Simulated scan of single mutants.
Amino acid sequence: MIQLRRYFVAAAALVVPLAAAQSVQAAVTLAPHRAVYELKLRETRGSTQVDQVRGRIVYEFTGNACEGYALNFRQVTEIASDEGGTNVSDLRSATWEDGKAQSFRFTAQNFLNQQLDRDTDGRADRSGGALKVTLKKPAGASSSFDPKTLFPTEHLVKIIEAGERGEPLLEAGVYDGSENGDKSYDTLSVVGEGSDAPPAVLEAPARVQELAKARYWPVTVSYFERGKKADGEQTPDYQMSFDLYENGVSRALRIDYGEFVLDGELKELEFLKPTACR
């Protein structure tokens, strides 16, 4: 059977994800929104057994820099192999991130063929010169990471700020609580030239007033598991490419797992009522 476990953590980094950890700056205002992406197989590589892939991502982001940011995420993916077998992954996660990037809470469940495969519940806090993670599930686990490590929304804001400054490269450690909550990632973000003009090819859901004149950048983020030993040149665990708007909305997703690549087409986009900082 195809080994599925490592294939269903990438998209949650849409906020998906820098030297010192800093407070989220008010100059970047992230828009509360709900987006739905349809996943399709773009290409396969090497000797992979993957034959067909289809799926869907539902991504709901709310909050502000004062009250913190909440993300509810679900990715259902069906993978068919050339041996005739089909496996379904259903990843459900909920996170909350302090607007000053001092605390991060997360829960996640991953089901493989309707059977619970992974159940994670924990929090991460900046304390005593370290990023300390405490897990309820798996029970009793804890770990510490470099205090410069960023949380997902903090990372997103840094990428947007790099785009606004015209900086093409951004390196950062990122912790997002994925898998068993015991890993962090080194990331390299390549930020292309920004534009205010709508793309030549644009999905119907993106043809809305909120994006019509919004600046956006083509972004590719490569994720490398920190501390993972590699023979020869290290390759990313996975890569994500997307067009990132200045309000935090993403479209034109591409998720590269090495053995196969998925495209994510924006199918629905709803802007939610924002809440003002008090």
Rank of each mutant, 00 (worst) to 15 (best):
L18R: 11
L41T: 08
S47H: 13
L39T: 04
I57G: 00
Q49F: 08
P32A: 11
R54D: 09
E43I: 07
T44L: 07
R42E: 15
Q25G: 14
A35E: 04
V53E: 00
V16L: 13
T44K: 09
H33C: 07
R54Q: 09
A19S: 14
G46T: 02
K40E: 13
S23R: 15
P32T: 08
R42H: 12
V24S: 05
T48F: 03
V58L: 11
V28D: 02
V50H: 02
A26W: 01
A27C: 07
S23N: 15
R34E: 05
L18D: 12
S47M: 13
V24A: 06
Q22H: 14
R45D: 10
Y37M: 04
V36K: 03
A20F: 01
V53T: 02
L30E: 00
V28G: 06
R42L: 15
L18T: 12
R42M: 12
S47E: 15
Q49P: 00
H33P: 04
Q22M: 14
L30Y: 05
A19H: 10
A20V: 10
H33F: 03
V28F: 06
K40L: 10
V16R: 11
L41I: 10
D51L: 13
T48Q: 04
P17D: 14
P17T: 13
G46Q: 09
E43H: 10
V53M: 01
T29P: 01
S23C: 13
V36A: 03
I57M: 00
R45K: 14
L41D: 05
V50Q: 03
R45G: 10
A20L: 09
S23V: 14
Q52T: 13
E38Y: 02
A31R: 11
Q49K: 12
L39R: 01
Q22S: 15
R34P: 03
A31Y: 06
S47D: 15
R34I: 01
V24Q: 09
S47P: 05
A31G: 05
A19I: 07
V50G: 05
T48D: 02
L30H: 00
E38K: 12
A31M: 11
L30D: 04
D51W: 10
H33A: 08
A20C: 04
Q52L: 12
H33G: 01
L18Y: 09
R34C: 02
H33N: 08
S47C: 08
Y37I: 03
Y37K: 02
A31N: 07
E43C: 08
T48M: 06
L18M: 11
R45E: 12
Y37T: 03
I57S: 01
A35M: 08
K40Q: 14
Q22Y: 07
I57H: 00
Q52G: 08
A27K: 12
A27R: 13
L41V: 09
V53W: 03
R34K: 11
L41C: 10
Y37L: 05
Q49R: 10
G46R: 08
Q52N: 12
T29I: 10
D51V: 03
E43Q: 15
A26M: 05
V58R: 12
E43A: 15
V36Y: 05
G55H: 02
K40W: 03
T44R: 10
L41R: 08
V53H: 02
H33V: 06
L18H: 12
Q52E: 14
A20G: 10
R45F: 11
T44C: 07
Q22K: 15
G55C: 02
H33Q: 08
V53A: 03
V50C: 06
P32Y: 09
S23G: 14
A20S: 13
L41Y: 08
V24P: 04
R45A: 15
S47L: 14
